[in-house]
């Protein structure tokens, strides 16, 4: 069986999730490797949630939120940024490539940007290969 990346995308309700909706409405194509998880704000995402994704078998995690200054809750995306930085540091020690975690700002109208981000990130993960290394048998 050929390997296909499994990616979790945390999208904030107000921007990125609506952006994904726009991508769908405008018929922009993006790879099926992305599984979207809606959260009210990216500031809600704790480092442990991202680590849990990797622990459960994700090959990559995207966190997509509102552009700086546009956060529905004023500064939630700034919290997200600092938490993602913490997560990168932890991943570095754990030996998980930091490129496997992406933080990006996608607004509600940027459907094309969402599709493009999903495509590019899938390619990045594809070039990095599976997190589990060569043994893919027990991926389930």
């Amino acid at each position: 069986m050929t390997w296909f990346p499994r990616i979790i995308a945390f999208c904030c309700n107000w921007c990125a999730y609506a952006g994904a909706d726009t991508a769908g409405l405008s018929r922009f194509q993006y790879p099926p490797s992305i599984s979207i998880l809606r959260v009210m704000c990216t500031g809600r995402i704790e480092p442990s949630m991202i680590l849990k994704c990797f622990e459960q078998g994700a090959d990559g995690v995207m966190v997509l939120g509102c552009h700086p200054g546009d956060c529905h809750y004023i500064s939630g995306n700034e919290c997200a940024r600092s938490r993602i930085e913490t997560t990168w540091e932890i991943m570095e020690i754990l030996g998980i490539d930091r490129k496997r975690l992406l933080l990006k700002w996608v607004s509600a109208s940027e459907g094309a940007l969402f599709a493009e981000t999903a495509k590019d990130f899938t390619e990045v993960i594809r070039s990095l290969g599976p997190l589990r290394g060569e043994s893919q048998d027990d991926q389930g």
């Binding site: 442990s48 849990k52 990797f54 622990e55 998980i96």
Partner: peptide
């Protein structure tokens, strides 16, 4: 801490 220490151990 959102269970982070156990996830680190698990990973």
């Amino acid at each position: 801490h959102g269970d982070i220490f156990h996830l680190i151990s698990r990973l």
